[in-house]
Amino acid sequence: MNKEIMLDIKQLHHEFILGKKKQQTRISVLKDISFQVKKGEVVTLVGKSGSGKSTLLNLISGFIHPTRGEIWINGSEVSTFTEKQFANFRLKHMGFIFQNFQLIPSMTAFQNIELPLILKGENENKRKQMTLDMLEKVGLKEFGDYYPSELSGGQQQRISIARALILEPPLILADEPTGSLDSETEASLLEFIQQLNEDLGITFLIITHDEVVARTGHRTIAIRDGRLVESGVSQ
């Protein structure tokens, strides 16, 4: 396994089974997908709605298990992991940015960012300091006590990014990160992602159907009808 490779997808195939037991229908959503993402790369995954890009991201995240094929992340074959193993792996090696932010509404911005640290079992003083530092990094130092509903979309996404970054994972998976944002906030956020990549060397795999976002990456992978059709360097 090449140490420079962060993500290695090998002949990945996935089917959804629909219907009841006796009348089941198998729908193949991903067919023979293979590609690699190097450490420190920002790769965008593009494709039309229903092309299978979100399914691919869910497979990489471990939210669903592939029908066939292998997924290697940072040298570990995660496609064979149990739910518990994947949970621990996600906490240590992966960060997530979702289209609709997925912040816990009953928790403040501070508490949302602190959550991965709590799950990891960090002590309270260290947690507090790290969370305050991260709030400052995402430019929301004054908003720690705000609840998600009291923040704008861009601010919520920054909190979401802060939560993804707090444990300094080597890989961040982003599913339509700017999908709920206006163009001005979108630009600001993309700049922030580029800055994080340059400063911290974090690898990003970003799913998008937005051409502007797609151009942010070092490389773009396109999916059509569950097949990889294009893999090229962004302009």
Partner: peptide, 12 residues
Amino acid sequence: DIGIMKAIGANP
């Protein structure tokens, strides 16, 4: 909330 916690790495 449980879904979010599991997504970011909460052990079952």
